[in-house]
């Protein structure tokens, strides 16, 4: 089997007395696309927040790219090659597309500390290239993204992740607020990532989408991982049984 890119051992998160995530053991291999599914409050987003260090875990270990990691914050996680598309669109609406793509890592022409001169031309060209690579079409890059549709904005967010992620992309419900056509566009980007061999963790409620896109499906229920199934060896009914707790009442051990 190919190399392991991400592994969690006994990952646990408690908010006071609430056990949001209990003893999550998870493995992702190079080039693999895995979906994380489960009911609301099952611990999917909590799981993502621990991996990306948006929150600090209560206990457990995380191994990324062969090393045990203890990120202090999301920036460190990002710098190590892990990009996240957040549920609430982490974009600045009043900035244009290149500024959003390069937010927090602007290209500069001339270093003057905080007053460094932006290299807008290079940012624009590379943004166009990144969008072309992910097959995202945005008519006018210099418009503030406020004026764009939800789908276009989500595509910008994903293109940003895809442009910088060298090792892993995590998407938290990337199509939750999108229409049919826009969802299709996002799914195409995800297929492109698969072809390029970029590993993906996809948090989704949409089982049709999950079966269409990923290699493996991990089911969360009440803060625990209750199943990890290959997409071609299971079906929707099976997954729903795990989500609702008809199946898999005891923890499963798997790797």
């Amino acid at each position: 089997m190919s190399k392991v890119i991400l592994e969690t051992r006994g990952l646990t998160k408690r908010y006071g007395g609430v056990h949001a995530l209990e003893d999550a053991n998870f493995v992702l291999h190079e080039g693999e696309h895995v979906a994380v599914v489960g009911d609301n409050g099952a611990g999917k987003s909590t799981f993502v927040r621990q991996i990306t260090a948006v929150e600090q875990r209560t206990s457990g270990q995380i191994f990324f790219d062969g090393r045990e990691v203890n990120y202090a914050g999301p920036l460190e996680a990002r710098e190590s090659g892990m990009e996240t598309v957040f549920q609430n669109l982490a974009l600045a609406d009043d900035l244009d597309v290149p500024s959003n793509l390069y937010l927090g890592r602007e290209l500069i022409k001339f270093n003057l500390g905080p007053f460094s001169i932006l290299d807008r031309k290079a940012m624009r060209e590379r943004t166009q290239a990144a969008l072309d690579r992910t097959a995202v079409r945005i008519p006018n890059l210099s418009n503030p993204i406020r004026n764009m549709s939800g789908g276009q904005r989500q595509c910008v967010a994903i293109a940003r992740a895809a442009a910088f992620a060298s090792k892993l992309i995590i998407m938290d419900e990337p199509t939750a607020a999108l229409g049919v056509q826009e969802t299709g566009q996002v799914e195409n980007i995800i297929r492109g990532l698969k072809e390029r061999g970029v590993p993906l963790i996809l948090v989704s409620h949409n089982l049709r989408q999950v079966f269409d896109l990923v290699d493996r499906i991990v089911v969360f229920r009440r803060g625990r991982i209750v199943a990890s199934l290959r997409a071609d060896e299971t079906d929707g009914n099976d997954i729903v049984s795990y989500i609702t707790g008809v199946k898999g009442q005891s923890d499963v051990a798997y790797v």
Binding site: N88, A92, D93, D94, E106, L112, P114, F115, L118
Partner: peptide
């Protein structure tokens, strides 16, 4: 034209982002 400006707008636009 500077990083300072971009960050100023970004914070006002979406501090979380």
């Amino acid at each position: 034209y500077t990083v300072y400006g971009n960050h100023t707008y970004a914070i006002g636009s979406n501090q979380q982002a």
